[in-house]
Design a protein around this nucleic acid. Sequence first.
DNA 1: ATACTGAATATTTTGTTGATTATTCACTAA
DNA 2: TTAGTGAATAATCAACAAAATATTCAGTAT
Lengths: 196, 196
Amino acid sequence: MTELDTRSQILIAAEERFSLYGYNKTTMVEIASDCNMSAANLYRFFDNKLDIGAGLANQCLAEKENELAVIVADNLMTSAEKLHAFVVNILHYTYRRFDVAPRLSELIEAMTIQRPEVMKSHRNSTIILLRRLLEQSVDAGEFEFSDIDATAEAINTAITVFYLPAVMPLFSLEEFESKAKSVCDLLVNGLSKIKT
Amino acid sequence: MTELDTRSQILIAAEERFSLYGYNKTTMVEIASDCNMSAANLYRFFDNKLDIGAGLANQCLAEKENELAVIVADNLMTSAEKLHAFVVNILHYTYRRFDVAPRLSELIEAMTIQRPEVMKSHRNSTIILLRRLLEQSVDAGEFEFSDIDATAEAINTAITVFYLPAVMPLFSLEEFESKAKSVCDLLVNGLSKIKT
DNA sequence: ATACTGAATATTTTGTTGATTATTCACTAA
DNA sequence: TTAGTGAATAATCAACAAAATATTCAGTAT
């Protein structure tokens, strides 16, 4: 078995455990024995448990980014609709994580605290996607703005609430959806060439 | 001494203790002895320690609301400037709480978790202030929008990041100030009659 | 060398117990 | 009746030991 295979075998075992029992309750010995190896051997492929978690988190977040990329790439929606779909997608992901999938949430939480770069990089990817959405909106003659990077950043900042699981208990999903709608409307109003 | 006097005497003692040693480290016996009474007697005026905290938190948050009200009432700034000052004020308050005044922060944190109504009510007051700001902007012929309540809500949602101490460690104050600026610009753009 | 292990060590978590603190209550003083 | 208390009880916290777990390392097999 090649080194790469072993790495991904470990990641697969870890994913199974993490999503079933959570990051904290999963031990290195368990992951190792799922792979029919000793715990010590895991350290030949990953520096530590946190790195296994980071590998997995990157995978999860990449999937999320892909969903967002699909929305951005869509060519039936208007830019306004895309932005709204974008925000709602983020909201639903966050809500689900706090509500129905708290196990995987534990992993993200551990990363937020102990591997902030993982989240930073996801944040960056998201901003790049927003930037692409903005580019396309200009091409389509729908939005206009002066500084595309500042604008993408600002949109991301304005929708940060929808990223935060900690805020989810404060309102129902319906309430959040309505908030997402009205924030998007406000943003779109500021971005649109023609005011509605 | 009237009942009201005793109540406020207790609150004053509690404020002193809470801001010096924090909510958790302050005991009922300490507050009581500062007031030259027994701990048991505190319970004739407050149902429990949390209620003393809530009384104080309400006071703190009311002060913050007053600062915001001053900004809204100002008649030298444009509406755009007011909105920006409003957001920056919130940001600075939040940043200070996490950075230099963690003692009082402890109280707010306890309230957020154990007395969410206190924070909800502050949120409401803030939205009412935003609503007033919007009203005035219409009178001044600066902003226009369809639904004032939805708009006030949406603005509040878009600036929620700046309320959250938990997010503060992620960026420097300067970075947050720049974010506040660009979010405000974006919002103002959407609200203004004349696009900039 | 490469892939791996068992056993040793270091770090974290868990569990327990005593001490502190919040809260209640039966009672006293004016 | 109103303002208050001390003592009892209940809930929470802190400290420390024990157990579990992560990580390292010296060594084995191929």
